[in-house]
Design a protein around this nucleic acid. Structure first.
Lengths: 234, 234
DNA sequence: CCAAAAGTGTTCGTTTTACACCCATGG
DNA sequence: CCATGGGTGTAAAACGAACACTTTTGG
């Protein structure tokens, strides 16, 4: 069957298809990006996003998950397509179209040893080294999409540990949007969505009084979402 | 040079890369989509989006513009990437990744004869025929992105003629969002952005009194955008 | 003169913003 | 006992939804 139909396309150009992952993490009140020090040609020694070519029988989405799993040991990660980079000249090596996808990971869960063994490291967004090809543009674009999304849906929870405090959540949003938020107003807004469950447990690492831990109530969120509820932060 | 570097990638799979265009137009208070009746295999006789394979030395974006120009005669059209469809099984014919892009066109400007000669026709969104492959999903996804975008930036102007009235603009937004809007409130909101210039000319085709024509002030818009101004419709 | 669409104004309730204030507690 | 961050309350301003009202003009 495949061979039969394939015949329609025989005179059509073929090219490499890659996927590059913009992997965001959040640690110590800072947004971090996972980047990769290339140990082989091309661009040996340069910094790049983690990525891979897509195999003939592999979904593009799957390729991204495969790469991230190989490097961090993590599975079941939040992934979303960013955009596709298809300029003819973008990779001088060969014609190669790259589908960029961004991931949000809980930085406390990944396998640090495995990651470093593979040549990947976390960098603060503000102090990224130069990146290979158009990878810096990919980061910019993904950040833009992340910000847009974060404004209208509670996407940020993907970046925090299972249980977190409201001040932690606030500092994540401050990192994403690059501006200070009012603690009182932020708390009221977030709680008004009623998608957080308070635990009977406090985090005392950043104050004597301690801040209650919360968990994200995925079920209630889905319900509200389906009922057309609007989650507009800020 | 190319041949030299190409050697790094010799063992990497290659595949077809296509682009499909979701072409929106606005006419008689209705959102319309340009679709294409296939005259050759595969899927001969079926309805599909207009699209093409990307050539080896051609930017992906360029391929979309080329297709649209060939079919409608239009150039300089608003284009934006939607998303990329990369499932291994999406086209039984052969492995083929498709980058979907949507276009907004002023329906009064295209070349009707050329378009029909090429087998393409405008359909109301509500009465689309069945589309081949995953093209229907592409339409759904593009609509979703269009709606999101339209909410936060004055994208709709791409779909109207150079000069338009506020009631016309309103009916466009009603078509995009599929709901009635209050004329008074809509007008105030739009005018508050101060990105419309009123002409000393009226359209009397839909009322005795006539409605003033406006043009979109692109320069002021860009300025406000850069200064961080928020355009939130609705 | 009147129907009908264009355009303006007013009201009222909600949301946002800024900020004052109370709480809990380890050092 | 007090500095510090957690958490609550509140008043003023801004905004949005609903709707009444005025304007214009061809038939």
């Amino acid at each position: 069957m495949i061979n039969n139909q394939e015949s329609y396309y025989t005179d059509v150009d073929k090219m490499h298809v890659a996927t590059d992952c913009i992997v965001f993490g959040f640690h110590q009140d800072e947004l971090k990006l996972l980047i990769f020090n290339r140990r082989v040609q091309p661009h040996k020694g340069g910094w790049s996003l983690i990525g891979s070519f897509v195999k003939l029988n592999e979904d593009v989405d799957h390729a991204a998950k495969r790469v991230l799993r190989d490097i961090t040991g993590l599975d079941n990660v939040f992934f979303e397509q960013s955009r596709t980079y298809g300029n003819a000249e973008r990779d001088m090596g060969a014609r190669c179209v790259s589908v960029a996808q961004f991931a949000l990971i809980r930085i406390d869960e990944y396998d640090e040893e495995l990651t470093e063994m593979r040549g990947a490291f976390w960098y603060r967004l503000e102090e990224l080294p130069e990146l290979v090809l158009d990878h810096y543009q990919m980061v910019i674009d993904a950040l833009d999409i992340l910000r847009r999304k974060a404004k209208h849906q509670p996407i940020g929870f993907e970046l925090l540990p299972e249980k977190f405090t409201i001040p932690q959540l606030q500092s994540l949003y401050e990192a994403i949007f690059q501006r200070k938020l009012d603690p009182g107003n932020f708390r009221k807004k977030i709680l008004s969505f009623k998608i957080l469950n308070r635990l009977n447990e406090k985090d005392r690492s950043s104050s004597k009084r301690g801040a209650f831990y919360y968990t994200f109530d995925h079920d209630t969120y889905e319900k509200l979402l389906k009922s057309g509820y609007n989650f507009d932060f800020l």
